[in-house]
């Protein structure tokens, strides 16, 4: 029987996964906090069945994506604001790179929940086979969807970012 201490220690090491999922799915701090709590609770509930067959990080990704995708907030009428708090600048980045990344981020924010999950796992360097396993679709389907998403992102970033 896994202990709470064991779980918290593992979660502490991998909590960046939950932060990433919350950042990609929610644009307001309060919503991010709610989703973080929900993912943490869901992970704790399922932790007893984690047998270490896959890596904890992969398992946590699956829990986080399942929770985020089925987590619906009551629709609030508000524009999607991409602010500095959401994308803090880092010293090593050039201003141009920062602008490009922000434009890409805005484009990702407009994607559907499923497409966001695909992008998230793709930028984490998971193979199409692993992404397919996590989403429950074939690697071929992942490849087809990624081609479509990449072209969609390219198109919308070109609109948002002036070269």
């Amino acid at each position: 029987m896994p202990t709470e201490q064991e779980f918290i220690s593992l979660l502490n090491k991998h909590q960046n996964i939950i932060h990433k999922v919350c950042s990609i799915y929610m644009d307001i701090t309060a919503d991010k906090e709610d989703l973080f709590q929900e993912v943490t609770l869901q992970a704790w509930k399922s932790f007893a069945t984690f047998r270490g067959e896959s890596q904890f990080s992969t398992w946590l990704y699956r829990v986080a994506l399942n929770t985020a995708i089925t987590f619906f907030r009551k629709e609030k009428k508000r524009p999607t604001i991409i602010n500095a708090e959401v994308f803090p600048e880092t010293a090593e980045e050039t201003a141009e790179m920062e602008e490009q990344a922000t434009a890409m981020y805005k484009a990702i924010a407009e994607l559907s929940k499923i497409d966001k999950a695909l992008v998230m796992l793709y930028i984490e360097d998971y193979s199409y086979h692993d992404i397919g396993g996590m989403l429950g679709i074939t690697p071929n389907n992942v490849a087809v969807k990624m081609i479509r998403i990449k072209s969609k992102l390219k198109e919308s970033t070109q609109k948002n970012y002036q070269f």
Partner: peptide
């Protein structure tokens, strides 16, 4: 790389 870092900023 940039996106991953931004997502990890919390």
């Amino acid at each position: 790389y940039q996106l991953n870092k931004k997502l990890d900023a919390d």
